[in-house]
Design a protein around this nucleic acid. Structure first.
Lengths: 122, 122
DNA sequence: TGAATAGTAAACCACTCGGTTTTATATTTG
DNA sequence: CAAATATAAAACCGAGTGGTTTACTATTCA
């Protein structure tokens, strides 16, 4: 089984999933996560590459925190942000779980039709 | 490894990811996807369990369609919706890819600190 | 043909979101 | 202490969202 081991995380609630997917649904926040992958950053460091005001960046960070994707440590007057994997694990758990169902459902659906019904509406 | 085999899907654009995660960021839409896992549904079927007006449900379905999560086939006056796995695969690809980076980054970060710095701000 | 059905379109509403600016607060530094 | 720094808080704004209602269109069926 090596290191995969998903599902060690409790089932996320609807609220959790709302917050996580919502946090991920913005490209600035995803870019912040990308940036955070290279190491911890202050709010200012996070704001800079996006030509964004500090309060703007701060709000995004708060959304990421609320989703459990980022942790903030206050170190004097500096707020240092790091990735927190739990949030992503929850999102991944939801997607993976559903993906299995989808594949199964689509599988049996395909074998049930298997002769292209009305899909020509593309 | 068994049947996992993701990554056969092209890299989703920022627009794609915006649409997908945004579609997933709403519990009514996630519930519609759940419902769709049990088989195709009409718009009315999708609206009914949520005590929601038809136009409301119709809008949600359009968001899911725009994200590539659902396909709609018009069959006479009935619109039959089915799951479409590509959207979920893209979301999964993004999450999985990033998860790997996160784990690696947090790994090296942990071995770098390994003595709990200032995390007491919870 | 005419009534019922399944859905869309459009207008509307309250609320949230992404962003700003302005002000305030705490911390560091000279 | 005073100045500079890093950030938050609050007020605000325009655009988008989730939802409705009220038409309207197209299809089915008696």
């Amino acid at each position: 089984m090596s290191t995969v081991e998903v599902a060690s995380v409790p089932e996320p609630s609807d609220d959790d999933l709302d917050r996580i997917f919502n946090a991920l649904a913005n490209r600035t926040r995803r870019a912040m996560l990308d940036r955070l992958m290279t190491g911890p950053s202050t709010i200012s460091d996070l704001a800079e590459p996006f030509e964004m005001s500090l309060p703007g960046a701060s709000k995004h960070v708060r959304v990421l925190e609320g989703a459990g994707l980022v942790r903030r440590r206050v170190d004097g007057r500096i707020h240092r942000c790091t990735l927190q994997p739990e949030g992503l694990e929850q999102a991944d758990a939801w997607i993976t779980r559903n993906q299995r169902f989808w594949e199964h459902q689509l599988d049996s659906l395909a074998s049930h039709l298997s002769k292209d019904d009305t899909r020509g509406t593309d």
